[in-house]
Amino acid sequence: MSSSTTHDRRTTSSRDEDTSDRKTLERIAPGLATPVRVMSFWMAIVLPFLYVPLLVTGLSDAAETVTFLGLFVANLVALYVGHSHRR
C-alpha cells in the first residue's frame, strides 16, 4: 500500500511540474506557446540526424566539435520545451 502511495505522490509531483512548465511558457508568449512547443518537439526529433555526418567524419577540429556541442545543446532545449506537446 505504501509503494502505491509513494508512486501516486511522484506522479502528482511530476504533473505539477509539467503544469508549471506549461504556465511559464503561456505567461511568456501566450499566443506563441503552442507553435513553439510543436516546433521544439519536431526539432528534437530531427536534430539528432544532423549529428550523423559530424560523427561519421569525426570531430577532428574545433569547429566540428563546437558545431556538435551546439547541436546537442539545441536538442536538449528542444526536448525540454517540446516535451509537453500533445499532452
Rank of each mutant, 00 (worst) to 15 (best):
S2R: 15
S2D: 15
S2N: 11
S4H: 12
S4T: 15
S4P: 05
T5K: 14
H7S: 08
D8P: 10
D8W: 10
D8F: 08
R9Q: 14
R9L: 12
R9N: 14
T12R: 15
T12G: 13
S13L: 04
S13T: 06
S14H: 07
S14C: 12
R15F: 09
R15W: 01
R15D: 07
D16R: 15
D18N: 09
D18S: 15
T19S: 09
S20L: 08
S20D: 11
D21S: 02
D21K: 08
R22P: 02
R22Y: 04
R22W: 08
K23Y: 05
K23Q: 12
T24W: 13
L25K: 00
L25M: 00
L25F: 01
E26K: 11
E26T: 12
E26S: 14
R27Q: 11
R27A: 11
I28Y: 05
A29V: 15
A29G: 13
A29S: 15
A29N: 08
P30E: 07
G31D: 11
G31W: 00
L32V: 04
L32R: 14
L32Q: 12
A33N: 01
A33I: 05
T34A: 12
T34S: 10
T34R: 05
T34W: 07
P35C: 03
V36E: 03
R37T: 02
R37D: 04
V38K: 10
M39T: 02
M39I: 09
M39P: 06
S40M: 00
S40Q: 00
F41Y: 03
F41M: 02
F41E: 01
F41I: 01
W42F: 08
W42Y: 14
A44I: 02
I45Y: 01
V46R: 06
L47E: 00
L47T: 03
L47I: 11
L47R: 01
L47C: 04
L47F: 02
L47H: 03
P48L: 03
P48N: 05
P48Q: 06
F49M: 09
L50G: 10
L50E: 01
L50C: 13
L50H: 08
Y51F: 11
Y51G: 08
Y51A: 02
Y51K: 05
V52G: 05
V52H: 06
V52E: 06
P53A: 11
P53K: 08
L54A: 01
V56H: 07
G58M: 09
G58T: 14
G58L: 14
S60M: 04
S60V: 15
D61T: 15
D61G: 09
D61L: 09
A62P: 04
A63D: 07
A63R: 07
E64P: 09
E64I: 10
V66T: 10
V66C: 11
L69C: 13
L69R: 03
L69G: 11
L69A: 14
G70S: 10
L71Q: 07
F72A: 12
V73M: 05
A74V: 02
A74P: 00
A74K: 01
L76Y: 05
L76T: 10
V77A: 01
V77F: 01
V77C: 00
V77E: 00
A78V: 00
L79Y: 04
L79F: 06
Y80F: 07
Y80E: 03
Y80L: 10
V81W: 02
G82L: 02
G82R: 03
H83R: 14
S84T: 13
H85M: 06
H85I: 12
H85Q: 13
R86Y: 10
R86N: 07
R86M: 06
R86I: 01
